[in-house]
Simulated scan of single mutants.
Amino acid sequence: MMGNAFIHFDNVSKAFGVMTVVDNLELAIQQGEFVSMLGPSGSGKTTLLMMLAGFEAPSSGSISVKGKRVDALPPYKRNMGVVFQNYALFPHMTVAENVAFPLKMRGVSRSETAERVGKALDMVQLGQFHERRPSQLSGGQQQRVALARALVFEPEVVLMDEPLGALDKKLREQMQMDIRDIHHRLGLTIVFVTHDQAEALTMSDRIAIFNHGKIEQIGKPSEIYDRPTTQFVAEFIGETNLLSGRVTACRNGLLDVAVEGGQQIKVASTAKFEPGEHVKVSVRPERIELAPAGGSANELSVRVSDVVYRGDHLQVIAAAASGPLVVKSTRKASAPRIGDEAVASFSPEQCWIVA
């Protein structure tokens, strides 16, 4: 996969003084892929994007596109469109002039520029806004202009750094769908930086989870969410319950684990573990049911300590011998009450071991 990658980061590091923000990182991105870089502030994701764009130089390692190194090229020679969170529009220019700017810098003729600007603005549904200034537009419209400007010169790659961070929830969700649609229609290669988990899950072909300058895990959204490989990823993406315990037996793809408090659970796992090994088991709140005893391989006795109304579900906090459990309960079920004794049940396939 590395050899025929469209974009390849080969052992790339970046240090500012004594602080290493990207640490010996290896990443391959295929042509036409939408890859999101997700992680907390300071995890290195934006620095990696800035190195790909040419605004920062690697301290070591190399970056190549289509097999050719680009780390020594200036930004304007990399044929990449960039969209920032703050839009970076020129206030004294009209919408059309803003979008035309990259073409002007490349010496494209006036007639071709007018045609391309019209197409780019139609693509982001701003065909009627040619003559307006950025100050006359809403935040969402300004972001569409920035997107049109990044697409107008038909770049090979579009880089986006928290492009929807300043928008309200409804507009942000609409723009997620619009960018996703443009990606599918044009077959663009998009590298997208965000700290919003839902955004990454919604839009990406693959997600790279960053932690302290390294990629902790990379995979399809479903893999990252349903099978996080480490405790950091399990806790960073969505909510999870972590149960500590020791392996008591390992056979036929199932681990028997005695969790803290003494109760036994079964975990589906292809990895081999020795009896006595300490493990952590992750189980998502929506995978747990509060149900009568006797219906599942894994049943933990709990007492309901809090019930929080969340609109589409109830968040139930339950006390088990192994520690507190968070359960997402559908509102169709008879609502649990504080103080209720219950059984938290889940199958071996709905929990997994994290490193």
Rank of each mutant, 00 (worst) to 15 (best):
338 I>R: 11
41 S>D: 09
50 M>F: 02
157 V>C: 13
134 P>F: 01
270 T>Y: 01
89 L>N: 02
268 A>I: 01
82 V>C: 03
188 L>A: 14
193 V>K: 01
342 A>N: 01
294 G>A: 13
257 V>E: 09
5 A>C: 10
315 Q>A: 07
334 S>H: 13
96 A>I: 10
288 I>T: 11
207 I>N: 15
177 M>C: 14
36 S>E: 13
20 T>D: 06
232 F>P: 12
251 R>W: 00
304 V>L: 10
179 I>S: 00
140 G>M: 10
323 G>M: 00
243 L>W: 01
341 E>R: 13
47 T>A: 10
285 P>A: 03
182 I>D: 13
147 L>K: 05
295 G>R: 09
241 N>V: 05
39 G>H: 07
58 P>F: 06
238 G>H: 05
76 Y>I: 06
336 P>T: 02
175 M>G: 00
35 V>N: 14
341 E>Q: 10
168 D>Q: 11
167 L>I: 01
194 T>D: 03
45 K>Y: 11
166 A>P: 01
320 A>Q: 10
229 T>S: 14
322 S>A: 09
344 A>G: 05
96 A>T: 05
316 V>P: 14
345 S>I: 04
77 K>F: 11
355 A>C: 14
14 K>G: 01
335 A>N: 11
267 V>P: 01
98 N>T: 00
257 V>H: 06
146 A>F: 00
289 E>H: 06
294 G>V: 10
108 V>N: 13
311 G>I: 07
345 S>Y: 12
13 S>W: 12
194 T>V: 01
99 V>F: 00
343 V>F: 09
194 T>S: 02
179 I>V: 12
74 P>W: 06
223 E>P: 00
156 E>I: 15
154 E>D: 15
88 A>G: 05
304 V>M: 08
214 K>N: 05
112 E>S: 15
43 S>P: 08
347 S>C: 03
210 F>L: 15
207 I>Y: 05
38 L>P: 10
224 I>Q: 09
26 E>L: 03
150 A>V: 00
272 K>L: 15
184 H>V: 10
343 V>W: 10
121 L>W: 00
10 D>E: 12
301 S>Q: 14
249 A>N: 07
106 R>A: 15
233 V>F: 08
23 D>E: 08
81 G>Q: 02
156 E>T: 15
229 T>D: 06
265 I>N: 05
281 V>Q: 04
186 L>M: 12
82 V>Q: 03
291 A>D: 04
268 A>Q: 12
5 A>L: 03
43 S>T: 03
4 N>E: 15
307 V>Q: 10
161 D>K: 13
284 R>Y: 14
86 N>F: 07
43 S>Y: 03
235 E>G: 09
181 D>F: 05
147 L>W: 06
56 E>L: 08
258 A>D: 09
317 I>D: 07
37 M>E: 13
58 P>H: 02
4 N>I: 13
232 F>Y: 14
300 L>H: 14
